[in-house]
Amino acid sequence: MYELSVVVFILLSLILYALLGGADFGGGMWDLLACGPRAERQRKAIAAAISPIWEANHVWLILVIVLLFTAFPPAFAALVTALHIPITLMLGGIVLRGSAFIFRKYDFQSEKVRHRWGAVFGVACFFTPFSEGMVLGALSTERIRYADGQVTTGFFAGWLTPFAFACGVFALVVCAFLAAIYLALYTQAEPDLQNDFRRRALGSGLALVPATLVVFLTAEAGAPGVIHAMTHDGWPMLVACGISGCAVAAWVALWRRWFAFARLAAVAQVALILTGWALAQYPHVITPDVTFHTSAAPEATLRLLTFALCAGAVLLLPALIFLYRLFSLPEKP
């Protein structure tokens, strides 16, 4: 019981990280890709939207990690051993993203230096979610094997497969899509900027179609378990239908300029994608050898952790909502 509740908390944190932290990365991508006559204004709006909240958004990832290593220590150990290389690369991206962003903000030296930091920030924003998608994808590939408390397949299994790459690309496009929708809402006081971000959202929404197709095509060979569950089991199949529905709804809403509704649909879409994947994957952490059941920490730890999570949620959620409400729109001049 407690085991399942911790798993649910991990999934929720992962979804929130994708929705919030992912959008921050997407913002960085649009920063790098900013173009046209309003490029500087786009960058300004992105920076203003991200600045107050990106650190809080980033904590969701830390939460996923500490929950995993507290509640399922052997699974965590196996995961970081097998995926040592992509995780290290991802961490490099995380460090550069955060540092470059803050350096750009406070480095008044010259425009040139600031542009250089901006470029580092933007590139790191592409690189990090790509490697994160790759790591998540690798968990489903069934290439990482584990026996007698050891990873037996070395350091290159799983994450170098076409499926993992497809997941990385998919994660990129999702981040860009979310960010563009959020930004369109954020810039509602400036219609020209809002139009820019709407166009970007529509474009990345379209790009999701081939990205999804590639994930499914590579999954045939790359992640047979997940694809089987998605197309045969009741729940994952239902979720898959829900995802498509939300995707279409989000795109149409954007087209009709119902921005708030578009955001809702996009959020639901991304949440469902991760939920569907988790349902297809459960109870495995790393298919096919590592499950939550076999790696769970003792009952005492799980029980205490569940209580701590509930208490933490009660204390922190109001603070988080306060934070997002406070900064949901740009400061009035």
Binding site: V66, T70, P73, F76, A297, P298, T301, L305, A308, L309
Partner: peptide, 15 residues
């Protein structure tokens, strides 16, 4: 971490 995660994960979660 494999051995001790269950024991010292708690302060990390609270952190």
């Amino acid at each position: 971490m494999k051995e001790a995660g269950a024991l010292i994960g708690m302060p990390f979660s609270l952190e």
